[in-house]
Simulated assay, not measured.
Amino acid sequence: MSRAWPTRLDFSKSRKVLTIDFDDGQTAELPYQLLRIESPSAEVQGHSPAQKKTVTGKENVGVTAANPVGRYAVQIVFDDGHDSGLFTWDYLRELAGLD
């Protein structure tokens, strides 16, 4: 299967949702809260599944910036200061239940 690439990322401040359109015709809508609590950072995921932390209290978290990382990912900066996770396109598709 060929990798699907994003054609559009739309960060909705009012809805607190990231909408991603992929070149295979699929669309993902990911709430900021989900992105924050499932951040791929070591701070959240740990270095093994047993080390994964449960993050709470992020119902109203916002996004202040999104920085491209090469052609494979985006670094999302949250308004609580968290910015260490690199969200690959594959990981975003996984969070959205695509594929």
Rank of each mutant, 00 (worst) to 15 (best):
A66F: 12
D83Q: 14
E43S: 14
G81L: 02
D80Y: 02
L86E: 09
V61P: 03
A42I: 15
Y72S: 12
L86P: 04
V74W: 09
V77I: 07
A42E: 15
G85N: 07
T64H: 05
Q51G: 01
K58D: 09
A50T: 00
V55E: 06
A50H: 14
I76Y: 06
A65T: 01
T56A: 11
V55L: 10
G57L: 06
V77M: 07
Q45K: 15
I76A: 02
I76W: 05
G81A: 06
V74I: 13
S41L: 09
V55G: 05
F78G: 02
P68Q: 10
A50G: 15
V74H: 11
F78R: 06
V63A: 07
L86N: 14
S84V: 00
D83V: 00
R71G: 13
V63H: 07
S48C: 14
E43P: 00
D80G: 03
E59W: 11
G57H: 10
T54P: 00
A66R: 11
S41N: 10
K58M: 13
A42G: 11
H82V: 01
Q51K: 13
Q45I: 00
R71K: 15
R71Q: 14
Q51R: 12
S84M: 04
H82G: 02
G81N: 07
V69L: 08
V77K: 13
D79C: 03
D80R: 02
V44E: 07
V74N: 08
P68C: 03
I76S: 03
V61D: 04
V77N: 13
S84H: 14
V61F: 08
V74E: 10
R71N: 14
